[in-house]
Structure formats: C-alpha cells, structure tokens
Design a protein around this nucleic acid. Sequence first.
DNA 1: GGTTCGTAGATCCTATAGGATCTTTCCTGG
DNA 2: CCAGGAAAGATCCTATAGGATCTACGAACC
Lengths: 218, 218
Amino acid sequence: MTLPRLKRSTLGDDVYDTLRSAVLEHTLQPGDRVNIDGLARELEVSPTPVREALARLESEGLVRKRPLAGYTVSPLLTRAEFNDMFEMRLLLECAAARWAATRATAAQRSELVTEATRTIAGGDDRQWHAAFTALDAHLHDLIATASGSPLLRDSIARLHAHLHLHRRYFPYAQTAVTNDEHQDIAAAIERADPEAAETAMRVHLTRARERHLVAFQE
Amino acid sequence: MTLPRLKRSTLGDDVYDTLRSAVLEHTLQPGDRVNIDGLARELEVSPTPVREALARLESEGLVRKRPLAGYTVSPLLTRAEFNDMFEMRLLLECAAARWAATRATAAQRSELVTEATRTIAGGDDRQWHAAFTALDAHLHDLIATASGSPLLRDSIARLHAHLHLHRRYFPYAQTAVTNDEHQDIAAAIERADPEAAETAMRVHLTRARERHLVAFQE
DNA sequence: GGTTCGTAGATCCTATAGGATCTTTCCTGG
DNA sequence: CCAGGAAAGATCCTATAGGATCTACGAACC
C-alpha cells in the first residue's frame, strides 16, 4: 500500500514554484528587475523566503544577481547562446533517445507512443500554443526519463527551462510536422531500435532549430 | 585599460564559497546534518545568509533539504549513481575534447599542453593527493572551456563537483598513468585532431572508471 | 549644452525574535 | 525486556526592523 507523500512544504518552496512559473510564463519578462520587497508584499509573505527562492532560481540561470543591486530576470538567448543550446540538445537528447530505445520499460514505451499521438484540442491561439509547448516539453522529458540516467534527465531539464523561455517569445506555426517527427521518435523507441531513435531525434532537433531560427532574422 | 572587477560581495556569497569548499574538502562529511544556527554562530553571521547559501548548494546537489527538518550533506555516490556519472562523463567530456580540438584558441592549446606536463611537487601523502586532484580537475575544466560551449562547460563542472566528493574518500595511487593519458589528450587537441582527442578522452575516462571502481569492492 | 556633484528616495542586505515543527529522551504499560 | 506515548529541548522557518548601498533626479559649474 503506497500513500501519497504528505506534503510538508515551506513558504520558500512555494515561492520558488510561483516565481519559476512566473518567469517561464513570462509574467515576469526577461530583463525585468525583480523587486524583493515588492514581490514579498504581492505574495503576502516576508522577503526572507523570497530571497531563498531567488537564490535557487539564480543557480538554475533563470535570474541573474547583481550584488547589492538586486535580481533581474535573465535576458533572452543571444544567437550564439541559441546555437550553443541546440548543439547541447543534439548531444544530450540524441543520447537520451538512443538509451531509451534499449532501456525503457514497457510502461514508458506505451506512454511515449500515446503522448506522441495526442493532439491539442481547440482554444484561442495563445492558449493552444501554450498547451502544445507543454506537450512537447512533456514528451522530451519522457524520453529523458526513459533513458534511465537521472543525470542526463536533469541536464536536459535545465536546458529546457531556457528553451521554454525563448519559445514563449517566438511561437511558430508548423506544429503538424513537429507531431510527425515526435511519432517517428516514439515509434523507434517503442520497437527498441536505438540507431533509428537517435537518427529520428537528430532530424527532429535539426529541423526544430531551423524552425526557431526565424526569431533571429531582422 | 582593463581594471580588476572590484568585488562588491555579500555575506551570502561568502558563506556559499566557504560552505562549498567545506563540502568538497569534506570538512563537512557526506551524510552530516547541517545545523543552520550552529553554522551561523561559527561563521559569526546570522542564519539568513546561511540559508541563502544552502538554497544554492541544494540546487547544485551538494546538500539535500528535508522541509522543516534541515539540510544534510549529500551522501556519497551509490554504485548505480557512479556508473551513471561516468556514462555522462563519456558523453560530455568526449564531446568537449572533440570540439576543443577544432575550436580552441592558440593560448588555450599551449596552456593545456603546459598543464598536462606539470607534475606535483612533494608534500605529505594527503596533501599531495589533494594537489593532484586539483590539477586533474583544472585540466578537465580547461578542455571543457576550450570546447567553446559555455553550456557544456557548465554541465561538466556540475558533474565534477560530485566526482570530487567521491574521490576525496577513495584516493587511488596510479597517478603516473593518469598523467600519460592527460598528455595524450592534450597532444591531440594541440595538433587539432578531433578524432584522436575524442578517442584519447574515451580511453582516459574508461580507465579512470576502472581505477575508481575499487571503491565499491567489499 | 554637457558634465559633475550632491541629496532624497528606494532597495537591498543582515540581524534578531518568536511561533511552529521535529528530534530525543524518558517514562509508563504490557 | 520491548513497544508506545508524552514532554523537553533543539532546530527550523518566517516576520520585522534598521543600517548600508544603490539609483534617480535636480542643481551648480565649466
């Protein structure tokens, strides 16, 4: 019999979750100054837990700290940083796909296939895109988890936080193609074909990179 | 004219550095409970900056937090975690060596060769081993930096913190071989041969893994 | 007009205090 | 002797207050 972990949470953790979401959903926009006291008043807590949450967010790179001058939300990726991120994604996520193909459990494989074939229901444009992005993130996380390497999963998760931030600013439209690519990856992993899984992931990421590159055209 | 960044530091940052060193040098041992108030008294600061430092260290995985019950220093790697770490090292550091071979600056190449040929001067056994470990960490960081990918370097740095923790507990003796392997890598990078650099790194890490494995024999 | 200086306001950082929770110890009952 | 429970102590977490630093604005000077 397994009971649900009863949650003994602290305010610091709650503030962290709230702030993290606020940054990712760009309620707090890149470059914005983060007023500790103001935020504390708004969340109806004291500055102490807010500081603790900010310290953690800084370690993840979502905010930057300037000593004695406060925190600011991390700016959007430069073109160089964007390229670096996709090189890292190629390195990490291709490995994740390869490993997942040989190590994933049966349950993970079937969940992966199910999620890859899911489509997003209607809603307004903005809402729909948010849901699509969430699904995409979830899928990549499933693969990272199925790789069986906690460290690999953690590294990928860190990257995706920044990717998410970028994506919210530059939505793109070709989601049907993305879905097809996802299904290719899922299928390869499902039939335990590491070579195909890695290749499918490489294709997917390479194309995704192209799709996102329009953000840097001026 | 470039002036040295004048340091406007906060107590939180100082405490962070001190605590991080304490964990890495196992002044604070794995599994130890971290008494916030006690630490604050010892460092002669208030608990507030100590909490901030601990929040950051937790994000890096050097300490663990149990809500309402304090922090503990992260335990040593299990055998599974150790294997996971070396799989990640193979993935990340081989890529770093490959990229460094094509992208490193001239200054980086020469520094790498210099450092790889350096030997550790005497001192007592413990001291000597600490110096050797530091040199090894520095060398791997040089390669990670020379890869030209800040994200890759950061990921590798995170891994090495845990590796360092493990190593301080299970020193091994075959340092001469290690030096040779380092020189092989440095030479390959110096002559801009990515294939050889990756291979040399792979050989080095595979053998290093074997050398460290004795820690798990009972 | 542009630059430098000085002041006022806002913000950050640290210390302290008290309520809430956990841990340990001791005691009681079986 | 062992299990269960209660109370005391230690520890954690949050709020508040005040000193220190930064930022912004306006005046004086070149």
